[in-house]
Design a protein around this nucleic acid. Sequence first.
DNA 1: CTAGCGATCCACGTAATAAT
DNA 2: ATTATTACGTGGATCGCTAG
Length: 380
Amino acid sequence: MATMTANVGAASYPSPPQYSPPSDKPMIDAGYEPNSMSSSSSPHAAHGGPGDKSPLSSLNLNFLKTLSEKRTTRDGNPPKRRGPKPDSKPALTRRQELNRQAQRTHRERKELYIKALEDEVLRLKEVFSNVSQDKDKIAEENRQLRNLLHQNGIASSSVAAMDDVISNPSMGYTSSGSISGSYAPGSSSAFTPPMTSISSLPSVAGSGQMMGGHMGQHPVQSVVDYDQAGIDFVLAYELPVDPSKAYMSPPHQAVAELNGEIPFGRNHSAVVDGVESKTKRGEQQSLKTWELSKGDLTTLLDLSKRLDLDGEITPVMAWGMILGHPRLTELTRKDFEKITDDMKDKVRCYGFGAVMEEFEVRDSLNAVLSAKPEASLGAF
DNA sequence: CTAGCGATCCACGTAATAAT
DNA sequence: ATTATTACGTGGATCGCTAG
């Protein structure tokens, strides 16, 4: 059992670049002699039965020790010579010999891997140290600049706001950084282009800016208010038609990571609770949902690309998908409603909110578009 | 000082099992 | 079938302590 779990995790150490596997098939100790002893092949003494020693036998302890210790013995002597044990018999079977070789190379790989990790730790320590120094310098400079502003009677509130954004990566994050590719990393069907174009806008920007980007691409568009259409689209799934659909699947970890970063609206479970309580009490007041402004929609679009739902997407993502469609301008308000209705049957509750299959959104969208007279077919 | 002894380190072998 | 990895055992070397 223990072997199973560990095996997968440690899948492989980077192979040692310099190690050349025994070319002429499993001959005795071919090509192995890291230190001194060359391939010998006539030792003796087999191993006995079960022995002494503590259960945490050498391997684990050795592993830990090699993380921090030197390559010499305590009296400064070089470590033990390597090579076959002086008392080891030549392998009796081909399989035995292969195992022996495999174990040697494995140990070597492991050693190199650990060494590489050690080096990486040192490197990162240095980087961290440098960054810390830079940060201190900048903070100090910032302080001085603020003082200067203050002395000259210039309010620094806006500057302070910028500081918040900088010091809190969860706010107004930009496209750089570690969050890359968080949406469906393995899914080639992800609709990245439109989403990135949207999310690259400052999240503090109002919907006007967001739409500016799209209206630039689709000028002189009908009367469709994409802001409002988007809000309607997203909110449509926050009021489950069928309360029995609630909690069909467990909360996703990705949401936990985003928790606390959503500065508006309501907990979705509360919404579902509200629905339940409504069905019980017949009260209208409990059927509240998110209070979503146009600015919030932009922020949601921004946040949504950081979820990894494995092929499923949130309504916000779906809306981003729709916005990114090359034939967006052909869509009317009725089309949006049609898609919304379509998807209502397919939406599921993911614990924190609604999700839907990406391909179903695509299908629905394409269905609506294909019912239209002409146009360049720009399916996904 | 030194021999004796137990604990620990270390490199290795073997077998089982998972992965390819 | 072969290779990679894990788990465990072995024996020599070394260390630290202690009694003589």
